[in-house]
Design a binder for these strands. Structure first.
Lengths: 220, 220, 220, 220
DNA sequence: TATGAATGAGTCTTCATTCAT
DNA sequence: GATGAATGAAGACTCATTCAT
């Protein structure tokens, strides 16, 4: 009475819920996107990796672009959610502890978002669509940046951060450094043919926190 | 009896020296790369823009990849050279002036390198080749980074920068923030369909310099 | 315990008799065929329009072709039946009245048959099958033509039509002109994006009848 | 110094003039169009039949549509030219001779145009483009129709055709009958798998001329 | 029997590369 | 060496048909 399910789902004993294959396709696409980027990504590759026929994609999405944008958007939302959950509370703990926590959250966010977004540049159509979609809701990557600015501003109001630092500049420095990290480790993994993610480089991050701390602390 | 020269070179009265067409192709490719990125770049586009036939490319390069990599590499070397020339001398002028000069140099470097490299990610083959080529000589982008680290370390030795800051961390923050700027302005120009480059955002850069200065200055 | 009936039939309170869904599919196909022609017609469209699942078709027909041919054949038979009912009786009324009635009947027949058959040309397989099916029974389009020839011949026997006119030629002229009309109005509606059928062009038809009348009338 | 020529042209020793392959493609397309219609016509078929690779088409035309429209348009123009050359001069010879000559010209025109245009119906995009192109210049199929109307009107002015016949109606009857002939012989050839063109059916045409002559002649 | 997602061959088109001239 | 049309292997997407439910 119901239509048949894809062989791959039957074999895997995957959930029977509606939209299972749709989610399967999104997951596979996210995986490929993170591993190899958007450029070489073909619909056939996705189908092959998903153990599914070439045409299924079009039963669940308007086309390749919609699938890719959905995969990108969902993962980005997830990363932002994780970031917002992990960011420190202004005034709680010490500034140093908070800054370390913030830096770690930014780094994890960057490690996730960089390989995703990396292939989007130059792909005018997709890039534009992605940005439009992101500006619409409040969970786009810029939400993470905004939250960071807000955190610094809040600490400033509490008197734990010097008045003459610009919270936006601080966020730019922190995000910049972390995304550079993300980029470099992507490069390094591409070079070493080692697709496995490096453990978070704790030492480097500590050095960055030390520098930022010096910048933020009010002169005694 | 000597081999024919491309019409475009004859018309332009360009130099007759061997390799003139090769350099012409490289220049055109660099221009297209900077303007529109690697993604939409076809050999036909290059040939058209260069006012040259589709096939010449293969008389001077092994293929599209070699041409692109050469163009990329040469431009990167150029940018590094410009950066090295523009960076401040440790101990000269004030630390603040030097930092402002350094920041500006890094920003210009980033503005040049980001759109070039942006399309390379996810293109595993090209990326790998590019990185290999760059590690071989000493004029790759990492030379700019290294020079920045050296500058900070030198100021540290001169006593103008606090001992407990890690020069590498400082360079990461500065390069990160500048490359983020480059990325964001590329995004913005893509979004606004306004291909013209913004003037260097002096205000933002100043705020960053202020923060870094606070971080670097030894406690009095 | 009896097999499930399609939702659409249940909802409509349609007859429970076997073949109800089959007839429903035929009717929907005829409608789509008349409205948009055969070219863009997909099985999915038919299923959607019929409020029925994509697969049912194959429970009642060998495939798309059989459904289309059945729909085409039944509609053609209907049109022929209508034509035969509408054609004039030889000897009754005046020749002029009869001719006008005949012309109107032929025009209506043409208006119905042209859009149906129009997409069949060039589709060798379907066309062949359609023609074979039509030659088998006695109610194909050629029956309308034959009836027209017979009418003219009958009037000839009654002495109301000149002896030296060929009834077949008369029928060819009349059918030709009417089908040309059908074709042209299909063209015009395609061009104007105005899917509504023009009212029968009475003036044009009158002019044609005048000419034919001159041709048929015995010299006094 | 010149680029190489397609193998098929080299093998055939075809003309060396520029655009030779373009014309070859048009000719092949016209042939396929006349033989099998537009519906089943694929770019691969054209390439195969032209003994040429799949991609060449796009070196000479913007796409399949442009090729098809060009082929269609050129052939139509040709047929119209032939028709205009073959049509009788009003007042010259006898009306009967002229009418026979006209009918033959219309029949030849129809035999050529029908199989060409036949597949266009229902293909909204192409049809619209074809009609637009045709309305633009003065050599479209409607030029043949207009010339026929003019001929009849001219004879009318000369007093050789009765005043109460509508020249447009006459043209409709003549073109209608001839195009019906074209359609039927296309059907018949499809049915018999005999793609060869029938000789012009002289007997049928004579009967039609007789009828029209009766219609046109002024009452003595 | 009805359902509708899955299948995969086939369509048009692009583009790096080749090669006769 | 230069030319630019020819080549053909992909790529994204469509759609008649199948089949587990």
């Amino acid at each position: 009475m119901s239509p048949r399910r894809a062989k791959v789902l039957r074999d895997r004993g995957d959930s029977d819920s509606p939209g299972a294959l749709r989610r399967h396709l999104i997951a596979v696409t996210q995986h490929l996107l993170a591993a190899h980027g958007l450029i070489g990504l073909t619909t056939r590759q996705i189908a092959r990796e998903a153990k599914v026929s070439d045409g299924v994609l079009y039963n669940h999405f308007a086309g390749k672009d919609e699938l890719v944008l959905t995969a990108l958007g969902e993962r980005a939302t997830e990363l932002v959610r994780d970031f917002l959950a992990a960011r420190p509370e202004p005034g709680a703990a010490t500034l140093e502890q908070n800054l370390a926590q913030l830096a770690r959250a930014v780094l994890e966010f960057s490690a996730g978002i960089v390989p995703l977004v990396t292939g989007l540049f130059g792909q005018a159509d997709l890039l534009h669509a992605f940005l439009s979609g992101i500006h619409a809701d409040q969970v786009g990557p810029q939400a993470a940046f905004a939250a960071t600015v807000e955190y610094v501003a809040a600490e400033q109001h509490l008197g734990r951060v010097a008045d003459d630092v610009d919270p936006v500049a601080v966020a730019q420095l922190l995000f910049g450094a972390c995304q550079l990290h993300g980029l470099v480790s992507q490069l390094r993994s591409a070079e070493d043919e080692a697709p496995e993610q490096d453990a978070v480089p704790a030492a480097d991050l500590d050095a960055i926190v030390v520098v930022l701390l010096r910048a933020l602390r009010p002169v005694r």
